[in-house]
Amino acid sequence: MNFILDGLFQAIQLLIRGDGETYSAVSATLKVSTYSMVVSLLVGIPLGFLLGHHDFLWKKHIRTITDTLMSLPTVLVGLLVYAFLTSRGPLGEYGLLFTLEGIAIGQAILAIPIVIALTATAVESIDEKLRITLISLGADKKQVFYSTIWEARYGLLAAGMNAYGRVLTEVGIAMMVGGNIKWHTRTITTAIALETNKGQFEMGVALGLILMAIAGIVNFSLSFLRNRS
């Protein structure tokens, strides 16, 4: 039990002391989650909009598939991405294995189905009357898209936060694709796994608390923005 309290003190110490390893892991985590979130939002929101807004053949089946992909195991994604990025894999020549960009690819694969499915739900929950209203106020197709996205902004925010939560806390992809290389691809989560393996439970707890703090800061600032608008 003691190590949890010790972990809290250690977390504070690490942050105040400006511990290099900790800040390196924090920076890696922030970078990689930002890359993957930007990609998954850019890809996921338009696809989710299409899925939620339009009717087409197989729509129901595609929704079921994206809903299922929301529970992709991170280790599986890690293995798949490794298979593509390894020097012997089809994308080996780009040298993305054991890089932050490589982890971001895997995390984007993890996050995109979440963004698609939750965007589709948010767009679906918007009234059909919105479309009618926008068209009858003179919106063209592009403006209908942008205005619908803007109307669904709270739903999209939830989609983004959900995906961010998954990306921030996953360890399987970061470990397998990133390799947990110190000063380089060691993220907070792989560092926690390592410290736990080394029996440094206090350190694991400390890093875990720092991760929680990051998630907290992100959520608080988003809800602050939300309340202001």
Partner: peptide
């Protein structure tokens, strides 16, 4: 190692 050879090294421990 870095000082004596001028080579940077990264490792994956597994």
């Amino acid at each position: 190692f870095v000082k004596e050879t001028g080579i940077d090294i990264q490792w994956v421990a597994t």
